[in-house]
Design a protein around this nucleic acid. Sequence first.
DNA 1: TCATGTTTGTTATAGCTTCTAACGCAAGCG
DNA 2: CGCTTGCGTTAGAAGCTATAACAAACATGA
Lengths: 222, 222
Amino acid sequence: MAADADADAVSPRERYRSQVRADIKARAWEQIAKAGASGLSLNAIAKELGMSGPALYRYFGSRDELITELIRDAYRSLADTFRAAADSGAGIGGLAHALRRWALDDPQRYFLVYGTPVPGYQAPDDITGIAQEIMAALLDVCAAAEPEAPAPASAGFTAHLSQHRDWAGGHPAPPGVLRRALAFWTRMHGVLSLELAGHFTGMGFEPDRLFDAEVAELTPGR
Amino acid sequence: MAADADADAVSPRERYRSQVRADIKARAWEQIAKAGASGLSLNAIAKELGMSGPALYRYFGSRDELITELIRDAYRSLADTFRAAADSGAGIGGLAHALRRWALDDPQRYFLVYGTPVPGYQAPDDITGIAQEIMAALLDVCAAAEPEAPAPASAGFTAHLSQHRDWAGGHPAPPGVLRRALAFWTRMHGVLSLELAGHFTGMGFEPDRLFDAEVAELTPGR
DNA sequence: TCATGTTTGTTATAGCTTCTAACGCAAGCG
DNA sequence: CGCTTGCGTTAGAAGCTATAACAAACATGA
């Protein structure tokens, strides 16, 4: 699904190459959806594509390199989703539901971004750049929402944020908006990741209503 | 660390067996802390213990069985932590900080419980039983906290909970308490898992202050 | 048009992994 | 004291990642 980012090739060789790379990634996404990132096998992908084993190393230097590429595409996809929602004038609730749709559309893709980290792994710099894009879109939406006094209980942390706002990347939002963006991030991730991981199955209540309730408490002005 | 649950053996053979099992699990925890669950190698553990390869299969039927045992121990450890906090009269804030200490003490242990799920994997029934213990302790603490009207924004979901409370396991808590327990669970997990995964590193603010702010918004009565 | 260099695929191989099978030995129990 | 049970061994199958060496197809310059 999607991920035709390599399609701007010119020479027939580059065209073929980017096509094979896209095929490999498509199969990789299928495998990850079925068995998780730890169950991804380059050998199996190569066999599925009709070519045998090490041919795949012409297109991706290593298993880690392929997974890093998938992680990058996942970040890119989320950043585009957030940017589209922000530019279409969606409020906090709209952004939340765009996030939920994106997550439910491919849970393992969500976990590639926000799941269990591998202790040694360090993401490349451009991925942290995309993460900042995501944060910028979130800040745009939070800043456009009707301003509201932050909850008195967290006034101390909001004051702390006014002096530690490097992560906002120069965004001219008041500390209350920063606080609300962080609350959006942590709370939406909290309820979403537990739902995606299946921790709500068998509990009886409907997960989407819990999600909506958390969204509602995030936007008490409406 | 800990996990001497097999120590109530009698015959010298069982005694030796449970000792070796404990050694294996100790090495497994070390490996998981360093390389994550996907980097756990039975072969490497056996070599570290001086025995060679397949000898380990006398003690654990498979790699999955060992990991399942570690997951069970992680759940057990968290349930004990929650129960101890609840019985010692800790409030919601106390329970939250006990959870945070437990998580920071071994992040990969936390992710074994709440991290990325493997699509095929299904936890044994007794583990879901321990999960209910955790929920019961959380409900005890939330019920003992001073009662307070739920936020008006989530009144609809609280009403929904009054009719879908199977997961509470017969706990006689009013729906507002159930709502608060779910908010505790999802919000604490949200901020904690992002911190443990390193998503806050380099952002400038202090993660523990964000955690405290979320705890404070959870207990606005104090 | 022909030759040259690049790219892509192949097979072979090393080294790692999980896990089964067959065997020997030692320790505990009746 | 003998017999059973359990433990550890080596051998080996099947899988994986990754590298090396080689063959074929392709694109391009003379």
